[in-house]
Deep mutational scan, measured.
Amino acid sequence: TTFVALYDYESRTETDLSFKKGERLQIVNNTEGDWWLAHSLSTGQTGYIPSNYVAPS
């Protein structure tokens, strides 16, 4: 499932994924509650993102 970032997010830990508003993200795993494992289609990096910062594209 592809989502789009609603806001900028700066990672707080090394497992988080930083992203910019408008960036497209492929969700890898969304069974972890409020933090989803995502892959950035812009940077190619993978990490955890706050689910309330993204919406379906």
Rank of each mutant, 00 (worst) to 15 (best):
V54Y: 03
D34C: 13
F3C: 05
V28K: 15
P56S: 12
T43V: 00
D8L: 00
E23I: 00
H39I: 03
T13M: 14
K20M: 06
L41M: 04
R24L: 12
S57P: 03
K21V: 08
R24A: 13
D16Y: 03
P50F: 07
G47D: 00
G33Y: 15
G47C: 00
W35V: 09
T15H: 11
A5F: 00
N29S: 15
E14Y: 15
T43N: 12
E23W: 00
S51F: 15
E23G: 00
P50E: 01
T46Q: 11
G33K: 10
V54G: 01
D8H: 13
S11R: 13
I27T: 06
V4L: 05
S51A: 12
E32H: 09
V4E: 15
S11D: 00
S42D: 08
L37Y: 11
K20L: 12
T13I: 15
T15V: 08
T46F: 01
V4G: 01
D34A: 09
E14K: 07
Q45D: 07
I27N: 02
G44T: 06
T13F: 06
T43A: 04
E32V: 11
T46W: 06
T43L: 02
T13V: 10
Y7F: 11
V28A: 13
Y53K: 13
E10P: 02
N30F: 03
S42M: 15
E14D: 14
S40G: 02
Q45T: 04
G33L: 08
V28Q: 15
G44E: 15
L37V: 10
D34G: 06
I49R: 00
D8A: 07
V4F: 11
L37I: 15
S57L: 08
Y48V: 07
E32N: 11
T15A: 08
S51K: 13
S51L: 03
Y48W: 13
D16L: 04
H39Y: 10
P50L: 07
T2K: 06
S40R: 11
H39D: 06
G22D: 09
Y9E: 01
V28T: 04
G44D: 13
E23A: 02
T43P: 01
K20V: 09
N52C: 11
L25V: 04
W35A: 07
Y48C: 04
S57F: 07
S42W: 07
V28I: 13
N30C: 15
S11L: 01
S18C: 05
T31E: 11
E23T: 04
Y48R: 14
R12I: 10
Y7G: 09
T2N: 07
E10R: 07
L41E: 12
T31P: 05
G33H: 15
D8C: 02
P56L: 07
S51Q: 08
T1P: 01
S18N: 07
D16W: 04
E14T: 09
T15D: 08
D8N: 10
L41C: 10
S51I: 04
Y7A: 13
W36S: 04
P56C: 09
I49S: 00
T2L: 06
N29W: 02
Y48L: 13
A5P: 01
R24W: 07
V4Y: 04
V4T: 11
L6V: 09
D8M: 01
T46S: 10
E32I: 12
W36C: 10
E32K: 15
R12A: 11
N29Q: 14
F3W: 08
S11G: 12
A5G: 09
S51H: 07
F3L: 06
Q26T: 14
I49P: 01
V54L: 08
N52A: 11
D34Y: 14
N29V: 10
T2A: 01
S51D: 01
W36A: 09
T15E: 08
E32D: 09
D16V: 11
D16G: 13
Y53T: 08
K20N: 02
A38Q: 04
D16I: 11
E10N: 12
L37W: 14
Y9W: 05
S57T: 11
Y53H: 13
W35F: 12
P56W: 02
D16E: 14
P56T: 06
Q45M: 10
G44S: 06
A5M: 07
E23R: 00
L41D: 06
A38F: 01
R12S: 14
N52Y: 02
Y48K: 08
A5S: 07
T31Y: 12
D16P: 02
Q26E: 09
G22V: 00
